[in-house]
Design a protein around this nucleic acid. Structure first.
Length: 655
RNA sequence: GCUGCCGUAGCUCAGUGGUAGAGCACCUCCUUGGUAAGGAGGAGGUCAUGGGUUCAAGUCCCAUCGGCAGCUCCA
């Protein structure tokens, strides 16, 4: 007999060798269990229990938990693979991998032809059929790699991918397989007990993918899908995807007249007047930050001779992403990064230790060739402005500077209204420059700065640049893609390459360390993410049009509207009067769709009393305000870069 | 770059081989109005580009360009 301890402390006894399902048969509601957790590991319900310890902690995994969802999706992926095999014929399909991902799962196949969206309903139908067949899902185990290879060869003609996977497993360890009906797959498990336990699923899209993500390897066909126990949860996800698509900056940006992507300039966005306002506001904001933190701003040449790029190392490492041009027989490159220019700026004169840390900021326009398939709205472009800076400092200053940068980044994201980004520390890669002492020192300083900043972060070992470790700040966009914003990179290499020195307090020439950093990253990408963050309804200070003045009657209220407009403009607010001969309802509708923060209605009452009836873009009626008071509030909301509306502040603005 | 899908008016889209359409936007006129669409009329397209099949191509085929999803890349 073995004793099982259930969550809550109750114990049951079971015969050795019985399955978990049998052992727990008397627990109420156990029929809904999809798997079980034994000593914290999720396993199949059919797993048999052996008693080498006194008491085994067993917990049924019930729908509603993350573990259960993972099992469901994994099994759904397998059933999809089985359906694909039936759709194309088992002998025509080779299976690659089929993991679960954040919102569902995918499976990669090698197929006789490419999949199209039209295949999905047919495959879904076969999946429903397999669900109805309620095939038991059976686990098989091979004791080692050879046994596993024997199994895989016995059940399928083509299995090169699976064999490659098995060959990569540590030898001597058991390898498990899961089978249902005519289908068996190499798999770690666990799985649902039978295909009839499948719940609600939906196949979402087809895509190309490479075996092991390597474009030199086989091109495979991938199907993305998702599954839930709860029909409503599935609907919610599908709905969320639609909502996310609605705030996609590639839709919203052009509609609000912020930017356009042109066939004439793929990857080089065109900024329209309204988008340019936002860019300029962000730059002005960052310039304020630079002034307060003792930066100096520079502007470096956009085009410089090849020799410079050879010296910097870009020619060797980054040439494929650079644009070149030839003038008078000499070859020049368009800058993909600002660092060489900053190094040249540093070198103008002998620097003293008294000047360090020397912080040189640059809103540098960079051009990088990106392959056509990688371009994406504003988040992946071929030309962009970086809010870049290079901090030249002594090694001893490193930690303080890094800490100040982490602080600056958090301050900026908080003030602009971004969610907390995910922070990642990347440490020394195999292929690197600089001594181990330098790496030890700088990695240590980064860790300590992160600890002092008191923020959570993860570590990507070996993912640093070859010239130094770095800290990246990542945010997720409306459609779930993660993007890098801030990057803080230590560089020992650039000062060497450009022979940068400073005169130390003892008169010796010493080598400074460089920190590259960008807070917003690419302004283009940042605006793209902002558009999605605010769904186009920007805070007052960023809004391209801040106030719309709407006269009730074109004739009678022209003067009063004109006066209000004058006052608004005097206060430096971006305002206009909506003149056309439309009814008030229509003017309100149009201004609202343009996401203009405040609408001022001017009619007889307001014209007489020197007031305006204020309405917000979310529909809130802010009542009638005296003009002076209204201007005061508008100025305050703008000047403090408030994220919430100050007029009619009893409710929150719908952003 | 690779695989798949898509490209029709400024925008959103309909149009399965037989005379290019709708809504919004735009222009003109009427309407002068009180919190999310007043009315009438007008103008606007080499159906992405180039080739092919056909008596006939927006529609079928091929190529190119661009967009989208994914892969990949981002010293």
């Amino acid at each position: 007999m073995i004793r099982l301890q259930l969550p809550g402390g109750a114990e049951v006894e079971a015969q050795e060798g019985v399955s978990i399902r049998e052992a727990l048969a008397d627990i109420p509601g156990i029929k809904k269990a999809v798997a079980a957790k034994v000593d914290g590991t999720v396993v199949d319900l059919s797993r048999t229990l052996t008693g080498d310890t006194d008491v085994i902690a067993v917990e049924p995994v019930m729908p509603g938990t993350d573990e259960a969802l993972e099992v469901l999706r994994h099994t759904t992926a397998h059933v999809m693979a089985q359906a694909v095999a039936r759709h194309f014929g088992m002998e025509n399909v080779e299976f690659a991998i089929g993991p679960t991902i954040a919102d569902g799962f995918y499976y990669d196949f090698d197929l006789p032809r490419s999949l199209t969206d039209d295949d999905l309903p047919a495959i879904e139908k076969i999946m429903e059929q397999i669900k109805r067949e309620n095939l038991p899902i059976v686990r098989k185990e091979a004791t080692d790699r050879n046994g596993a290879l024997a199994i895989i060869r016995s059940y399928r003609a083509k299995s090169a991918f699976k064999q490659e996977l098995i060959a990569g497993f540590p030898d001597g360890e058991a390898v498990s397989f899961y089978g249902q009906g005519e289908f068996t797959d190499l798999c770690r498990g666990p799985h649902l007990p039978a295909t009839g336990k499948l719940a609600f699923f939906k196949l979402l899209s087809v895509a190309g993918a490479y075996w092991r993500g390597d474009e030199k390897r086989e091109q495979l066909q991938r199907i993305y899908g998702t599954a839930f126990f709860d029909k409503k949860a599935l609907k919610t996800l599908l709905h969320r995807r639609e909502e996310a698509a609605k705030r996609d900056h590639r839709k919203v940006g052009p509609r609000l007249g912020l930017f356009r992507s042109l066939p004439e300039a793929p990857g080089f966005p065109l900024w329209l007047p309204h988008g340019t306002v936002i860019v300029n506001q962000l730059l002005a904001y960052m310039r304020e930050k630079l002034e307060r933190r003792a930066y100096q701003e520079i502007r470096t040449p956009h085009i410089m001779i090849d020799d410079l790029w050879k010296q910097s190392g870009h020619y060797d490492h980054y040439k494929d992403n650079m644009y070149f041009t030839e003038i008078e027989g000499r070859s020049f490159a368009v800058k993909p990064m600002n660092c060489p220019g900053a190094a040249l700026a540093y070198k103008q004169g002998l620097r003293s230790y008294r000047e360090l840390p020397l912080r040189l900021g640059e809103f540098g326009l960079c051009h990088r060739f990106e392959r056509s398939g990688t371009l994406h709205g504003l988040t992946r472009v071929r030309s962009f402005v970086q809010d870049d800076a290079h901090i030249f400092c002594a090694a001893a200053d490193l930690q303080g500077e890094i800490l100040a940068l982490i602080d600056l980044a958090h301050e900026v994201y908080r003030e602009i209204g971004f969610g907390a980004p995910r922070m990642v520390l990347s440490t020394r890669p195999e292929d690197r420059t600089g001594s181990d002492e330098m790496w030890d020192h700088s990695e240590g300083e980064l860790r300590e700065a992160l600890a002092k900043a008191g923020t959570d972060y993860t570590v990507n070992p070996g993912d640093g640049a070859f010239y130094g470790p770095k800290i990246d700040f990542m945010v997720t966009d409306a459609i779930g893609r993660e993007h890098q914003l801030c990057t803080i990179q230590v560089d020992f290499s650039l000062p060497e390459k450009f022979d940068l020195v400073y005169a130390a307090d003892d008169g010796e020439r010493k080598r400074p360390v460089v920190i590259h950093r960008a807070i917003l990253g690419s302004i283009e990408r940042f605006v793209g993410l902002l558009i999605e963050q605010f769904s186009g309804a920007f805070p007052l200070w960023l809004a391209p049009e801040q106030v719309a003045v709407l006269p009730v009657s074109e004739d009678r209220h022209a003067d009063a509207a004109g006066n209000v407009l004058q006052e608004l403009r005097q206060a430096g607010l971006r305002a206009h009067v909506d003149w056309p001969g439309n009814k008030l309802g229509k003017k309100i509708r149009e201004a609202t769709l343009k996401k203009i923060p405040y609408l001022l209605v001017i009619g007889d009452r307001e014209a007489e009393s020197g007031t305006a009836a204020v309405r917000r873009r979310d529909g809130t009626d802010c009542g009638v305000l005296e003009l002076g008071e209204m201007l005061r509030l508008l100025r305050e909301e703008r000047d403090t870069r408030s994220l919430t509306a100050l007029l009619g502040a009893t409710t929150t603005d719908d952003r």
